[in-house]
């Protein structure tokens, strides 16, 4: 098995010169070695000061999101083999975009969480709802909401979103996906107000259907479809209101 070159974009808090790229030679310890394995190997064998985040290591927690060879991905969920083949080669890792870098590959997700809160990400049960509420597994509603409830809030979609990069006020894919999941859920009592919070010029109307969020989502959530779903809900309610059918 060939060595790989792991090139990491490093930012030190003390270093005012800005980020710099540093390369490490890493042995391919197994065919199933992930980018996270390579980062851990470097930390243990080459440079203990290399900073990155990780927790579950099995694509569940959404902690280790980085940009790998220019593409957002979970370090634990991206196999080195899938990037360089069996002849070795270079893997470039950098922190997620549109978020302030704390150190090396560690970013500050504050803005991302702020937007989730701004879009009203918390579930608010309907008054007088049946407890426990149920949506049957084969119901249409269940099929609609299920994919959108898979979100692990890793922030990869936010990093991939070109609009979020242009306008930090944009709510972003994850927040809007969450809004769609709740608006489509009959157990949620947010109702029309959720649509109003999402349907602003820094909400759904700012999305230009670039599909980058959908492309990088490690859970395969059709995020763009969720945003388009919100748009259609607003269009329908607006046009109904116009001809007086909304009451």
């Amino acid at each position: 098995m060939a060595d790989i070159t792991l090139t990491v974009k490093r930012t030190s808090t003390a270093d005012e010169a800005g980020p710099s790229w540093q390369s490490f030679q890493v042995p391919e310890i197994a065919e199933t070695m992930s980018v996270l394995d390579a980062l851990i190997w470097v930390q243990q064998n080459s440079d203990p000061t290399l900073a990155f985040r990780r927790a579950c290591r099995v694509k569940m927690c959404g902690t280790c999101g980085v940009v790998i060879n220019g593409r957002e991905g979970l370090a634990c969920g991206t196999l080195v083999r899938s990037l360089v083949g069996d002849r070795g080669g270079e893997v470039r890792v950098e922190p997620m975009r549109h978020l302030p870098v704390v150190r090396d590959l560690v970013t500050d997700p504050g803005v991302f969480y702020q937007h989730l809160a701004g879009a009203g990400a918390a579930f608010s049960p309907k008054d007088g709802g049946q407890e426990p509420a149920e949506i049957l597994p084969d119901s249409k509603e269940r099929k609609t909401i299920d994919p959108h409830r898979e979100c692990i809030y890793c922030g990869l979609c936010y990093s991939a979103c070109s609009v979020a990069g242009l306008d930090s006020g944009f709510l972003g894919p994850a927040a809007l996906n969450r809004a769609f999941a709740l608006v489509s859920d009959s157990r949620d009592g947010g109702g029309k107000q959720r649509l109003q919070v999402a349907a602003t010029e820094q909400g759904i109307w700012r999305c230009h259907t670039i599909f980058e969020c959908t492309a990088v989502c490690p859970k395969g959530i059709p995020i763009t479809a969720a945003i388009q779903g919100l748009k259609r809900k607003v269009v329908v309610s607006k046009l109904k209101g116009l001809i007086g059918l909304d009451r």
Binding site: N69, G70, R71, R92, R97, I210, F211, E212, A215
Partner: peptide, 12 residues
């Protein structure tokens, strides 16, 4: 990123 647009980024 130098390789931001490597591959097909049709939507972008």
């Amino acid at each position: 990123s130098p390789d931001r647009n490597s591959g097909t980024r049709a939507g972008w």
